[in-house]
Design a protein around this nucleic acid. Structure first.
Length: 575
RNA sequence: GCGCUCGUAGCUCAGGGGAUAGAGCAGGGGAUUUCUAAUCCCUUGGUCGCAGGUUCAAAUCCUGCCGAGCGCACCA
């Protein structure tokens, strides 16, 4: 357990002390990074806020605050500027001390949360007997990244893949399985064959509506536990999961649980009965619904939990899931990483949770859509969803083409490995770097362009560092440097400051589930490293400077690797 | 009709009470006997959709309007 304190924490403590000694509320002590280096490294508006509160002159309060501030060990003399800002510029020796602490810290100066929580993250959730497509990518990548970040910060995280493994589609699939199956095709490409069956039954139904009766019978038989249909169902689930697992493996994504909808099957009927008995739900037009008469926006939006024909719905399963998770894990928070179009559903679901007396912090981590360059939902030419598998393959293929041009000397094996790291990294990063609510306009050229805020740009910074160490014959031991890091150039100062700020930035990601904050920080880190790299020779420098710069490069590499890891992105050794 | 989300540079996006609104791409100009130029430096470009309001301070919060997308009873 490290007792590492960030610069922000130290300044905040000092500011609180100063405020208290002036009989002002320490709650005014808010320290932020400056937007512009001209104003120093950190700033506070405390004087303005306090002045407002006590109807005094902000610049006078600022002057008094500065007089009471004890920061001689970390900051240059604080400066008062503008309407009453107090600006801090950290001392060189302080920065050197902090970066040395960070260098020795296995957590790279990123503190664990003081209040660890149990957090369930529900993400990805594809449908069985269908292919995963672009629509699943944001949930999968965002969810995985949030899970990694929350875990790293010390939370207990349970990831759950809530598979769509039960539902009306199985009537069609089972009917097709019995009458139209191509066994060879099932072995070769199981999901494709299952999708084909589903579509063919769909088409046949349209031509001959009488077929619907038979399809419906298969579904009912399955729901009643018919052995043959249950076997087919199990087989379909297993085959689908196999295919999903391949994709998750490629994506480097894993789950603690995969409790699909079928898991809650037996809970649904008693659940609806119970909700009716408690008058939380009511019969309505032959169906069963939950109403929210006192809710400002939901009063005209019923939440349906049982159909007229007795069947249950998505909502029913979700309520059962809510209760199951509560009983088993007693979570402090439950995060649903699911697209923005489903906001109403979650608003209703959480309102039900409230009626049931569940008090976890339920959050719908919503995100925008992935659009084509025409700004319409991304589809293939024939109007179908783009399969995730082919998307991943294309990312790798496109990267391979570039790697072939840049590294003609590497072995094919090595090139493929590099291309995989770069291609998938680019794809994931292009998704995570944007604010999650903004629609992504999908562009291969942009994400793989290697310029600007892209994964390859970050990976390249890492590769440059590794190359230096290779040249020195220190390939594996980059962290063994314990020589002090000296700040002799502005480029070094900027880089050090950026490195130190990760301890402040990373915990803030979870406030609103926004890994794009981390992306931006990593981009700035890479940018500052490149600047340092151009301006400060390392290997050619005189011994103590060389050791210092090697150490600085080493910490930078560790931070890049760790930061990208938290995004679910890997780094290549060469590229 | 009700609701949700979005509207910032030519394009793609950050910033979501704090100082003169920032990046990248595209456009213009420069740097390479290399520690990987997949890089770096300089530069052009903005009525933050519009109108009010709150505030010492608004791109940011509130209200209204305009525009786009999405969702609203038996799919998930």
């Amino acid at each position: 357990m490290s007792f590492y304190k960030t610069s922000q924490e130290i300044l905040t403590e000092r500011l609180r002390a100063a405020l208290e000694s002036m009989d002002l509320s320490p709650d005014f002590a808010l320290i932020t990074m400056t937007a512009d280096p001209r104003f120093g490294d950190y700033q506070t508006n405390a004087a303005m806020v306090a002045a407002k509160h006590h109807k005094k002159n902000p610049r006078e309060i600022a002057a008094q605050l500065v007089a009471h501030l004890n920061v001689a060990d970390c900051s240059e003399r604080p400066e008062i500027a503008g309407a009453g800002f107090i600006n801090f510029r950290l001392q060189k020796t302080f920065l050197e001390k902090k970066i040395d602490e960070l260098h020795r810290d296995p957590r790279l100066g990123i503190p664990k949360t003081p209040q660890p929580q149990t957090i369930i993250i529900d993400f990805s959730s594809p449908n069985i007997a269908k292919t995963m497509h672009v629509g699943h990518i944001r949930s999968t990548i965002l969810g995985e990244s949030l899970a990694r970040i929350a875990r790293f910060l010390g939370h207990q995280v349970i990831t759950d893949n809530h598979l769509g493994d039960w539902g009306t589609q199985f009537g069609k699939v089972i009917y097709g399985f019995k009458h139209l199956l191509n066994k060879e095709s099932l072995e070769k490409n199981s999901i494709q064959e299952l999708v084909r069956l589903y579509r063919e039954v769909n088409d046949l139904e349209e031509k001959d509506p009488r077929l619907k009766v038979s399809v419906r019978e298969e579904l009912v038989k399955l729901q009643k536990g018919d052995e043959e249909n249950l076997d087919i169902w199990k087989k379909v689930v297993a085959l689908s999961w196999q295919e999903f697992e391949k994709l998750y493996h490629v994506l480097d994504v894993s789950f603690d649980e995969r409790l699909g909808e079928s898991f809650y099957n037996n809970a649904l009927e008693p659940l609806v009965k119970r909700l009716l008995a408690k008058s939380i739900a009511q019969k309505s037009e032959g169906a069963v619904a939950i109403f929210f008469p006192h809710h400002p926006t939901l009063e005209e939006k019923p939440f349906l939990i049982q159909k007229t024909d007795g069947g249950f719905l998505y909502a029913t399963t979700d309520i059962a899931t809510l209760e199951y998770r509560e009983q088993r894990w007693h979570p402090d928070a439950v995060w649903y990483v699911c697209g923005a179009p489903q906001q109403l559903h979650f608003e209703q679901l959480f309102a039900v949770a409230c009626k049931l007396g569940l008090t976890s912090d339920f959050r719908h981590i919503a995100f925008g859509s992935i659009l084509g360059e025409d700004r319409k939902m991304m589809k293939t030419r024939s109007g179908e969803n783009i399969e995730l598998g082919s998307l991943l393959q294309e990312a790798i293929d496109r990267a391979l083409k570039i790697v072939n041009e840049r590294n003609p000397d590497s072995s094919d094996e090595e090139k493929r490995k590099i291309a995989t790291t770069i291609g998938l990294g680019a794809l994931k990063y292009s998704d995570l770097m944007q604010h999650r609510m903004t629609d992504v306009i999908f562009s291969w050229d942009k994400m793989l362009s290697f310029q600007g805020n892209t994964a390859p740009y970050l990976q390249n910074a890492y590769v440059r560092i590794r190359s230096i160490f290779r040249k020195e014959g220190l390939e594996q031991e980059e962290r063994k440097f314990s020589s002090p890091i000296l700040i002799t150039e502005e480029a070094e100062r900027r880089l050090v400051l950026q490195l130190l700020q990760f301890g402040e930035i990373i915990p803030s990601i979870l406030v609103d589930a926004r890994p794009n904050i981390l992306c931006l920080a990593l981009y700035e880190l890479a940018n500052k490293f490149h600047y340092f790299y151009e301006h400060c020779p390392i290997l050619k420098s005189e011994e103590s400077i060389k050791e210092s710069r090697l150490a600085l490069a080493s910490v930078t590499a560790s931070m890049l690797k760790q930061g990208l890891h938290l995004l679910g992105i890997q780094v290549p050794e060469k590229m």
